[in-house]
């Protein structure tokens, strides 16, 4: 078999060929513009502000198939002012919408952790919407690397 450019992502520098058997080409990746369009759709037209929301993600993924991320939003979480939802987007994945977390004042705090699959190096974007109509965004580039030559 031949090694495709895509399957290279699973290869270290010169691994055995058998390791990558079964990797198939997937659908085309979304563009950053598509992802931002989805972000604006979620934001309902408000321009997202920076701050208040914090996205934690690794700078370089250890395994692109399961990248741990955490998101937290500063909020009083009272009936009058709470985080309604937080959505996560990946601007280089075939489908940029990853997950939406919904909260209520009973949640106590607006924080969540999950794992996601990243097809290649790209930005992960977290957007929070509050009950008062505010929208906050944080973004982090996560690199998906071949690896194998450090040290």
């Amino acid at each position: 078999m031949t090694i495709t450019r895509r399957s290279m992502l699973t290869l270290s520098v010169g691994a055995a060929i058998g390791v990558v058997a079964g990797v198939r080409s997937g659908p085309a990746a979304a563009s950053a513009e598509d992802a931002m369009a989805k972000v604006m759709e979620f934001a309902g037209g408000s321009e997202p502000a920076t701050g208040t929301i914090t996205l934690d993600a690794p700078e370089i993924a250890e395994n692109g198939n399961t990248v741990p991320i955490s998101v937290s939003v500063e909020s009083p979480m009272t009936d009058g002012d709470y985080v309604e939802s937080v959505a996560i987007f990946a601007d280089g994945n075939p489908s940029p919408e990853v997950i939406t977390f919904n909260f209520t004042p009973m949640s106590g705090e607006a924080s969540a952790t999950t794992r996601m699959r990243l097809a290649k190096t790209q930005n992960v974007i977290a957007v929070a919407k509050t009950s008062t109509g505010q929208v906050f965004m944080d973004k982090k580039e996560v690199k998906v690397t071949i690896g194998g030559c450090g040290g």
Partner: peptide, 18 residues
């Protein structure tokens, strides 16, 4: 193992970015 020229370039580019 057998590798194409483009794969070899991608490997070197990746290491260079590290």
């Amino acid at each position: 193992s057998m590798m194409t020229g483009s794969l070899i370039k991608d490997i070197i580019e990746d290491v260079a970015d590290n």
